[in-house]
Write a protein that binds this DNA or RNA. Structure first.
Lengths: 198, 198, 198, 198
DNA sequence: GCATAACCGAGACGGTACGTCGCGTCTTTGG
DNA sequence: CCAAAGACGCGACGTACCGTCTCGGTTATGC
């Protein structure tokens, strides 16, 4: 007998997500326990176990709840100037990653994903894919506008734009500032410029 | 009174690292406990606590022990053909990441690093930096040989080469094959070709 | 608003008592839970809580339901031969106590009674008293027939007849066979024989 | 690996028994939890589970600890006057049963014994048997002194003396006073008087 | 005959306790 | 004097039940 979602208490759901979010920020993901989340949320442990399979899943939903307002389709800016648009987006992402709350939550999530294939799949489908689609759309638009090599491997191109960014953030290798964002965009565009091949 | 390293039992040290390695592979990092490592290694718990501050540190050393034979200075191949050399190196890295043992250990380590700044620093200094230096040497050699933009930001260039690679592996986004290694190298070189900037 | 007994579902009532009875026998009283009774009876938990204050009360009623057919006034055999009649009754009781179902239920009840004064009172009034009255009647009849010391403390006499019996059964000190029943009766009658006192 | 009794902490053992004793008296056996005992004793739960299999076993030891000073062989008074001696003993027992602490503990124990055969056996061997032996000794001495039927079933005789007593106490059927004690002894002796049988 | 009030099943909820596992510390014993 | 062994106080795990509470959905009168 699976839990009956219709009877689910929204009050508890929100309290749990908020408690999880706050605790990750306050004491760090590994020291967050389900007991502590329940205690903080004023909720029975079973209410957590009823609706989430693991601590990671709760944090996952807590992260999603943070960006819930963006609900629906995500679109990247398209002013016609690809380079400017990409810089805008990457700089904004840098700001997000600098926010301590979001940053702590996302670190927790990435750590768990690295080690839990199921959560990885979930993240892939619910978060990554829609974002990737939006980014691909912008690149395709650039291709149509002749600002981009029509034969380029767009997935690879996205890896170039985002992976170094994410890695720097995750491993704290260097600062995530506007200069780095700009350099990333410029180098990527050099690699995939319309004239780059033949 | 700090432990006297001279009296340290090498037999126990190796047994502990081997047990840690095997357990991470068998049950997954989060389910490895210090108690289990001690049990498997036939060692008292205190012997672990005496020499390592945390589970992460033990696994960290276990990873280092795996590549211990490479001891000393690391050098990348330098046949004179930068593109060929980089492809060789990246393809080899892909093979390493495909090995289940090493892969499981490294995933564990990355997960812990994402969340534990101290371990991140340790990893940075003991593992990352020597590797990065070796890679930079190879790029500088290429610059001297005129195969590379002399003004290029070499750190950024390394990010381009390795970050997408690592990210694909960590998040299981796609296959790590020769084709991907080659594409990475080619695109990176396009971005940093000697002629790339006026 | 107290529950309206008129509307009570007899179907549920009987299912609950049967489930309680079976569960006590199967898993032992301490491991019986109200949830399990409800589950087994195909009944909502509230239906139990509405009509019984505690697990002990349900089992109490389950025991009473077992001997419900004896409804009304209980009478002991009175053939004129007190010794024979008492032996008949005690031997029959021994058989009842040997029945695994009844025995398990009664043990549960006694255990609860030892520790719950309220249930003790209830048991006293609903079960013990009528039985005691019937037994006293038989002894009085014997007194009238001159088979028994007219000044005897009949309550004490009943204690002699039944307490050793119950104790043996409860504490599993020895077998409950015909020989023991007979010996009990004989010794008791020796103590309270008409000629016993002056 | 069974726990190593040599390393057992006496401090913890005594604290646990004291906590168990106090809690049974304060809140009643069924509402005593192992968690509460551990909390009150300032002890980890595991320390209880390591040395006792169940709540009942802890209370059992707590009861034994109460009468630990009697250590060794128990002897009943033997002034030569059997009736007087038995009355002395039974009256003393009545006083013990009236003590609220001991009474609550013993009730708990009896309740658990009624329902847990293993605990019943344990109680039988560690507590009941030595007591029974002492009582039998006294009766045998009386037989030798000609104050008692030489062919009497002494076990049955003990049942007569103690079972009604215990039952009254357990089921709160009536007061446990000197009069009842005396009446029990007198009736029992009537049943087993030397002249009772041919 | 039709409202309406109750019981009924189901089961979510805030809790407490279960019995187990692991933490990091401490102590005892033996090589 | 280090190492094995492992007891200890502690706290979290994930599960089972507690007793309360709301849900619809049947009944079963009483207007």
């Amino acid at each position: 007998m699976p839990p009956d979602a219709a009877r689910r208490s929204d009050r508890s759901r929100l309290a749990i997500l908020a408690a999880a979010r706050d605790l990750v920020v306050e004491v760090g993901y590994p020291r967050v326990s389900i007991e502590a989340i329940a205690r903080r949320a004023g909720v029975g442990k079973q209410t957590i176990y009823r609706w989430w399979p693991s601590k990671g899943a709760v944090v996952f939903d807590a992260v999603r709840a943070l960006s819930e307002d963006e609900a629906g389709v995500i679109t990247l800016p398209d002013t016609g100037d690809l380079e400017a648009d990409l810089k805008t987006v990457l700089r904004a992402t840098a700001v997000e990653f600098t926010d301590p709350t979001l940053s702590a939550l996302l670190r927790a999530l990435y750590a768990e994903i690295a080690v839990d294939p199921e959560l990885a799949t979930l993240y892939q489908e619910k978060v990554e894919r829609p974002l990737t689609e939006a980014k691909l759309d912008r690149l395709r638009s650039a291709q149509r506008a002749g600002q981009f090599d029509p034969d380029a491997d767009l997935a690879l191109c996205l890896d170039f734009l985002y992976a170094p960014f994410t890695q720097r953030w995750l491993s704290r290798t260097g600062p995530l500032d506007d200069a780095y964002a700009d350099a990333l965009v410029e180098a990527t565009l050099r690699a995939f410029a319309p004239t780059a091949r033949g």
